[in-house]
Simulated assay, not measured.
Amino acid sequence: MTLRDQLEKALVQGHENDLDHLLYNERDHIDDQKVLRDAAVLIAVTDRPNPGVIFVQRPQHMRNHPGQVAFPGGKIDPGDTDAIDAALREAHEEVALDRSHVDIIGMTDRFQSGSGYNIQPVLSVIPPDLPFVADPSEVESWFEAPLDFLFDPKNRTVHEGTWNGRKRHYYEIYWQDYRIWGITAGILNNLEKRLGWAS
């Protein structure tokens, strides 16, 4: 069975059951009157014996989420046909990932962020070792982290902090010198529960 087949089967089966009581997002930290902005991110899994996931690190000069690790992605623009189109566009803009290399598997649980975004993660498979080129205006660097490491609960810790005057809990994962936390770690936590691939 190919990696794509494995991921597709796990994603479909994982969504057959209601796991809302297990999933975490930031909806409790969102002002009820706030209109959420639609966004999409691409979870690009590399097709290799030990699959990895592609991440970008935002530059420190960015207004939103400076220096944070994220999946390629961003706001859904009026010209985008849907969340998939937006995720593919953003990935191409940020790291020159050609959409012809991306095999879309499907969409998984939306993540509502306390910063006001309704984020649609798009799961996909890409060939390994593509020649990514980071756009310096949006991406400081990019890296690949092993899927097994990211999905192992032993590598994911829960922390408490205060944001906008409210206490919030968030996940944190360290891979080498990179800190994966907040929204991105939350999406990974949700996806691991859907796929059931915990080590």
Rank of each mutant, 00 (worst) to 15 (best):
T2W: 14
K9L: 04
A10I: 00
Q13K: 15
H15T: 09
H15L: 12
H15K: 14
E16F: 13
D18T: 02
L19G: 00
D20P: 00
D20A: 12
D20Q: 11
H21I: 11
L22F: 10
L22P: 03
L23Q: 09
L23C: 09
Y24P: 00
N25F: 04
D28S: 06
D28V: 01
D28A: 05
I30N: 05
I30Y: 05
I30P: 04
D32C: 03
V35E: 15
L36H: 06
L36V: 08
A40V: 05
A40H: 02
L42C: 02
L42S: 01
A44K: 06
A44N: 08
A44L: 09
T46H: 01
D47Q: 06
D47A: 11
V53Q: 09
F55P: 04
Q57V: 14
Q60E: 12
Q60C: 01
M62W: 00
G67A: 11
G67P: 12
Q68S: 11
V69P: 06
V69Q: 07
F71W: 04
F71T: 01
P72M: 09
G73F: 13
G74Q: 12
G74L: 11
K75R: 15
I76Y: 01
G79F: 12
D80C: 14
T81P: 05
A86L: 07
L88S: 02
R89H: 11
E90C: 10
E90V: 03
E93Y: 14
E94Y: 02
A96C: 13
L97V: 04
D98F: 02
H101A: 11
H101G: 03
D103M: 11
M107V: 13
T108P: 01
D109R: 15
R110T: 07
R110L: 02
F111T: 01
F111H: 11
S113I: 02
S113H: 04
G116P: 02
G116Y: 02
Y117C: 03
P121H: 09
V122H: 04
L123E: 01
S124N: 05
S124G: 05
V125K: 07
P127I: 07
P127Y: 04
P128V: 01
P131T: 08
A134L: 03
S141H: 12
W142S: 05
W142H: 13
E144P: 04
A145D: 06
L147W: 01
D148P: 00
L150C: 10
L150R: 08
L150T: 09
F151K: 04
P153E: 11
P153H: 11
N155K: 08
T157D: 10
T157G: 07
H159K: 12
H159C: 09
G161M: 02
G161W: 01
G161F: 01
T162F: 06
N164P: 00
G165R: 13
G165W: 13
R166V: 10
R166F: 12
R168F: 12
H169A: 01
H169Y: 08
Y170H: 12
W175F: 14
Q176M: 14
D177H: 12
Y178I: 08
Y178L: 10
R179P: 02
G182P: 05
T184E: 10
T184D: 06
A185V: 02
I187G: 07
N189D: 15
E192W: 03
R194T: 14
L195G: 03
G196C: 08
G196T: 05
A198G: 09
